[in-house]
């Protein structure tokens, strides 16, 4: 027995393990398993689902994204850019008397500034979301599991990472199996 264990250890060193992945049939099973894994003290884990499940973020990560602040900053930048650009071009760089109106006709500048506010906010929302999510990311260990291709159709997955302080290969595999998983797979790093 000791020999096989040593061999397994050697194999692990050669093929380092990213974590252990459990497959579930329903979103309910995934939510329940995530709750129990958190209760069992696991901290480094992630749930994968083909649909957005707001509960999973509340259970596993317990914090909201700071995306809305990024969007607010983007919007304010857009508005400031709009007004500053129009003021500088119409009143500073090339002042032109049009119908006797003042150079800094801020009411007329509202529309382009409004549009730039929305433009910058929208770009901040999209780019911010992708950047916070670390996308584009061509490689991720979870894709090494063949069954994971179902995660974008109708299967649900929970991964406990080997970086978790409570992680132990056999124990974690057994734990996930006890949570009603349809299958438990090793995830190569």
């Amino acid at each position: 027995m000791g020999g096989t264990e040593a061999m397994a250890h050697a194999a692990e060193r050669e093929n380092p393990l990213y974590g252990v992945m459990a497959e579930f049939d329903s979103v309910q099973a995934l939510v329940d398993a995530s709750k129990r894994a958190v209760a069992a003290g696991f901290t480094k884990m992630e749930a994968y689902s083909p649909i957005p499940v707001e509960e999973l973020n509340d259970i596993i990560h317990r914090k909201r994204t700071k995306l809305s602040q990024i969007v607010l900053a983007g919007g304010l930048t857009g508005m400031a850019t709009g007004f500053a650009m129009q003021y500088w071009m119409s009143a500073v760089d090339y002042p032109m008397n049009i119908g006797g109106r003042p150079y800094a006709t801020w009411t007329a500048f509202v529309v382009p500034s409004y549009e730039l506010t929305i433009l910058f906010s929208a770009l901040a929302a999209a780019i911010g979301m992708f950047a916070l999510n670390g996308l584009p990311q061509p490689y991720h260990p979870v894709f090494n599991v063949e069954r994971f291709s179902m995660a974008s159709s109708d299967k649900f997955f929970l991964v406990i990472e080997s970086a978790d302080p409570r992680f132990d290969h056999g124990g974690t595999t057994r734990f996930l199996g006890e949570q009603g998983a349809k299958g438990v797979y090793d995830v190569a790093a």
């Binding site: 995530s34 992630e46 749930a47 994968y48 689902s49 083909p50 649909i51 957005p52 499940v53 707001e54 999973l56 973020n57 259970i59 596993i60 990560h61 909201r64 994204t65 995306l67 809305s68 929302a125 999209a126 911010g128 979301m129 992708f130 916070l132 999510n133 996308l135 584009p136 990311q137 061509p138 490689y139 991720h140 979870v142 894709f143 995660a151 974008s152």
Partner: peptide, 17 residues
């Protein structure tokens, strides 16, 4: 698809966005 994985964290930020 940029390497989309559908993780809980992905989806949360995605829904907010």
């Amino acid at each position: 698809s940029l390497g989309w994985r559908g993780s809980a964290r992905h989806w949360h930020r995605y829904e907010v966005a």
